[in-house]
Write a protein that binds this DNA or RNA. Structure first.
Lengths: 224, 224
DNA sequence: GAGAGAATGTCAAAAATGCGACATTTCGTG
DNA sequence: CACGAAATGTCGCATTTTTGACATTCTCTC
């Protein structure tokens, strides 16, 4: 079967030397955002790569009916918008800040110039991108092959930021439900079961993973 | 809402100059496979990048019960296994040939050496990888947000090779069903409806998309 | 610290989907 | 060209999930 791990992609900045990070910093604009503020919207152009310096962001798609489908959680050191630099694809997600957040924005031409001088920028980007694809494949597999309960558990693991001290997911159940493609009612019952198993705790507007490794273990045992 | 396009990733080889392609060819081993033959299995190590020179391959995961979940269709010029070169991730998919297929296999050290000399190898790889991530995001969105019929239609579009002359998908309905995460019975009725709409044709062990752009148009009109 | 708005917890009926079974069609092989 | 294996087409029935409703709990602001 499938092997569940605590896998998370390595942040882009962690893959770069201090010198490279410094050069990047001086090449871009630093912007600050408040909780919930929009960073980019679907359809925006102005190609460029954005890097979360502090705080976090979330990427998703707002439906016409106001529903929000979260696609990924972008923690400190991670990038987004990278594909606008290297492909002709339009921005397809809405990005908003989670908590007060600082974001470094490097316009495409400037980033490309850096890449030309120093291949490390591209190699690091390639590495995180490959790891992210991998994660996406895991999510796909989870959506298609797992039954309800393990599916929910797996998504919690994937969406949970890896930072040691914050196993807290600040999601409303409504959003999490549309992220998983299920109804809020059934999500709630699933969460209740996971809580009874002692794997998570439900809060108002948030979820806590009590013990990440315990959740992984349960998932490996109960995957079907 | 979501905008459905005829988007397909550009093959890796198409992004490289003729010289680069030539160097790649002489750097790797050429292998031939028969229809259905395994190229790699989950868990294999020996890192290296593989490129489909002729024919096609499919990537998926075999369940313990023999079920097969197709994850992607890899056409001529596309790569797989790339992540074994740049990350420590294990191979997580089974790759098998679709029809007689020629595959170029370049061991990791040799590919890295090429990259060090000529950044074009990495830039091209970055580009296709970004495009593939994009596709994966579309698949995810389809799985979570679309109702049954559009979901099936969308997957057909995504899985269909873009080659002009071959809008034929050589999938058994059983496999396609597990790829979509639905039962064969409901897949069949969905396909029947799409056939009645004149969008596809069902065959024995295969499906034909009669008119790709018509299917795209229908999808944009009926997405929900 | 009281009240309004927002989010969660839960229920029963309705709809969708899966499951297992079986008939039918197709393909390849001897 | 006849046969068996393999794949498709289809049908109820069982199960799961959604829907819509409503009560409850929480949080934030005045």
């Amino acid at each position: 079967m499938f092997e569940f791990s605590q896998y998370q992609a390595t942040p882009y900045l962690d893959l770069l030397s201090d010198d490279c990070v410094e050069s990047l910093r001086s090449a871009g604009h630093h912007r600050s955002y408040k909780d919930g503020q929009f960073v980019h919207s679907r359809g925006d152009d102005k190609p460029g790569i954005s890097i979360v310096e502090d705080g976090a962001a979330q990427a998703g798609i707002y439906g016409a009916d106001g529903s929000f489908v979260l696609t990924s959680y972008i923690g400190a050191g991670h990038t987004f918008g990278d594909f606008t630099v290297f492909t002709d694809l339009p921005r397809t997600h809405d990005i908003s800040a989670v908590g007060p957040t600082k974001i470094l924005e490097v316009p495409a031409p400037r980033f490309l110039a850096l890449c030309a001088d120093e291949p490390a920028y591209m190699q690091a980007l390639l590495k995180t991108t490959l790891m992210r694809s991998h994660l996406l494949l895991e999510m796909l597999h989870a959506l298609r092959s797992l039954s309800f309960l393990p599916r929910v558990a797996n998504f919690l693991l994937i969406l949970a930021p890896s930072e040691p001290r914050s196993p807290t997911l600040r999601f409303r159940q409504t959003d999490l439900a549309s992220t998983l493609g299920v109804s809020r009612a059934s999500l709630n019952t699933a969460l209740a079961k996971l809580e009874n198993l002692g794997l998570i705790e439900r809060g108002y507007g948030q979820l806590m993973i009590t013990d990440r490794s315990k959740l992984v273990a349960w998932l490996n045992a109960n995957a079907q």
